[in-house]
Write a protein that binds this DNA or RNA. Structure first.
Lengths: 214, 214
DNA sequence: ACCTGAACACCGTTCAAGT
DNA sequence: ACCTGAACACCGTTCAAGT
């Protein structure tokens, strides 16, 4: 940037505008021109706040991370882990078209550390050896982000509509296991319950490795 | 499309060209013009094979999935699960700039079912109740894809370079847990081992829920 | 310190036309 | 059945200029 003080409030305003545009219209609609118009500026004025659109997207990761609430530090470490996970998934549901930037871009922001820090704290309090805390945090956040992104990107399937007919187009020779399972695959899915089940398993695994409160 | 027979070979050729361009130059370099030039066609000729660039990207998901090898159906269910997971991660390392399309786009392709089918088969053979097979497959593939995408997108950090100085810029008040952990966070990470550890845990969990071979 | 306007080299895509 | 060329409405970004 090579720039002196710049108006931080205005920068936040620009990022919120970008987020708004991405949520109605999709990420593709989030052009510099559209963002500029949303805040009443020429597209070129944005280059006073961000060196490029790519840098703006990096900051947008931080803007989305701000929407993940921090857990109550007084709570049990289990409660803190659950609160972080549920808060992140809730943010994904709130910003379904933008959330995937979290998995697609290298995270090199203070905001990322702000969100990771309570996870480190909870894992230490669970008694995880210090040299293994970062690895557990990666497991935990990979599950949470992976699940949330899969949900909102539609990778898990949009309510299984049409799944049955697609399955039958290929036949039991190509898809033996699908056909053995049959109509069980068309059952509705309780995504909340599935997420909570995964979380419960993870917390149990942390508990098993931990040696009790530090 | 509203189109009769079209040259399937040519379509594969186009998708391979697109993959090649994305890998050297990044996804942003994968323009219709660039893809056309790579196969010796006008950009407009591509619209005879794909209705839009978006549809081309959907097919590209299938093209990447083709790179995930199918496991030996004679092997133990554990071996089959491991083979699928390692094969998918290997594909991510082979196509680091393209692989994230798998998590970002709804998957509605026969190729996706082709990859999922052996997972269903392995989970059934592990004794997972039929109505829970799809859920387990989602857990498993979320871990594998989430980990692989995080690795290649740099979300896990590029060898922790600069982590220390960024940590110290924020101080122990904002990042208490980071500072309690201190230099342990700068230790090098064995990604292969971390992936294998996660896999081992997942397989153990499947085994615990399963009731033995069907 | 912050913003604009014109311009450049690109995009994806439509349309009419060619063989 | 397959492909081209010109054109349209967009992009991100540079540069010189304005206050």
């Amino acid at each position: 940037m090579a720039m002196g003080k710049i108006n931080q409030e205005r920068r936040e305003e620009i990022l919120s505008a970008a987020l708004r545009i991405a949520e109605n219209g999709g990420l593709a609609a989030m052009s510099m021109r559209a963002i500029g118009a949303e805040v009443g500026l020429t597209p070129m004025a944005l280059y006073g706040y961000f060196a490029s659109k790519d840098e703006l997207l990096d900051w947008l990761v931080g803007r989305v991370l701000q929407e993940v609430p921090l857990p109550d530090p007084e709570a049990d470490w289990r409660e803190r882990l659950l609160a972080c996970a549920r808060g992140a998934r809730a943010a994904a549901h709130r910003y379904p078209r933008t959330f995937s930037v979290l998995l697609n871009r290298p995270v090199v922001l203070p905001e990322a550390m702000r969100v990771v820090d309570p996870l480190y704290g909870a894992l230490m309090d669970a008694g995880i050896p210090h040299e293994r805390v970062a690895g557990w945090e990666r497991m935990f956040s990979t599950f949470v982000l992976g699940f949330a992104v899969s949900e909102v990107s539609g990778r898990f399937g949009e309510g299984n509509l049409g799944t049955r007919e697609r399955r039958e187009r290929l036949g039991p020779r190509e898809l033996p296991a699908h056909h053995r399972l049959g109509e069980v695959l068309d059952l509705p899915v309780d995504w909340d319950a599935e997420f909570e089940e995964g979380l419960t398993r993870l917390v149990a695994m942390v508990e098993a490795e931990g040696t009790g409160p530090a």
